[in-house]
Simulated scan of single mutants.
Amino acid sequence: MKLKTYFVVGVVASSLFLQGCGTVVRGTSEDIKINVEPKHAKITSTSAHSCVGPCVINVSRKKEFTLTASAPGYQTQVVDVETRVSGKGAAGMAGNILVGGIVGVGVDAVSGATLDHYPNPVTFNLKRGKGTRKLTPAEAAMISKAKSPTS
């Protein structure tokens, strides 16, 4: 009976060491919150998501994509959403180095668990008129901060 218990404990411990800390704790996908004015604007993405704002889409952490917001009578806006190593992702990577070893580092790197999307949330403020305006990720992040209720 003891041999079976040791075997189970060994299998569980091994599986924990073989998985990346970030992959286990943070997951391999992330919710992207999208705010838009006017509220009826259609949101499309190059990651095959679409919705009517405001909305939330779930995207693989390692996938960069473009969001487009459009509404009749308004200028279309486009934002590239990039990936960056986040503070939490870096902490998971450090945990791998201390506990999980090189295998965990590799798993997190391949899965994208160390990454976050930027900007997140994405805020569109469509202007009346025609045409398209492409915002940089930094501009979109500034708009999101200016629109957040905590600022």
Rank of each mutant, 00 (worst) to 15 (best):
M1I: 07
T5F: 10
F7K: 04
F7I: 13
V9R: 03
V12T: 01
A13G: 08
S14N: 14
S15G: 09
L16F: 10
F17V: 07
Q19A: 15
Q19E: 13
C21Q: 08
C21S: 06
T23E: 10
T23S: 14
G27V: 08
T28M: 11
S29L: 05
D31P: 07
K33P: 04
K39V: 10
K39A: 13
H40Q: 13
A41D: 11
I43T: 00
T44L: 06
T44F: 00
A48L: 14
H49L: 06
H49K: 14
H49V: 07
V52E: 02
P54H: 03
P54C: 03
P54S: 12
C55H: 00
V56P: 03
I57T: 01
S60Q: 02
R61F: 08
K62S: 15
F65K: 08
T66L: 06
L67T: 03
T68Y: 09
S70Y: 01
A71E: 14
P72Y: 04
G73T: 06
G73R: 01
Q77V: 06
V78L: 05
E82I: 15
T83N: 14
R84C: 02
R84S: 05
S86P: 04
K88R: 00
K88E: 05
G89L: 00
A90Q: 05
A90T: 08
M93Y: 08
G95D: 01
L98C: 12
G101C: 07
V103Y: 07
V105A: 03
V105Q: 08
V107H: 00
D108F: 00
V110Q: 12
A113G: 12
D116Y: 11
T123K: 00
F124E: 04
F124H: 00
N125G: 01
N125F: 09
K127A: 11
G129V: 10
K130L: 04
T136E: 03
A138V: 11
A141S: 15
M142C: 12
K147N: 09
S148T: 14
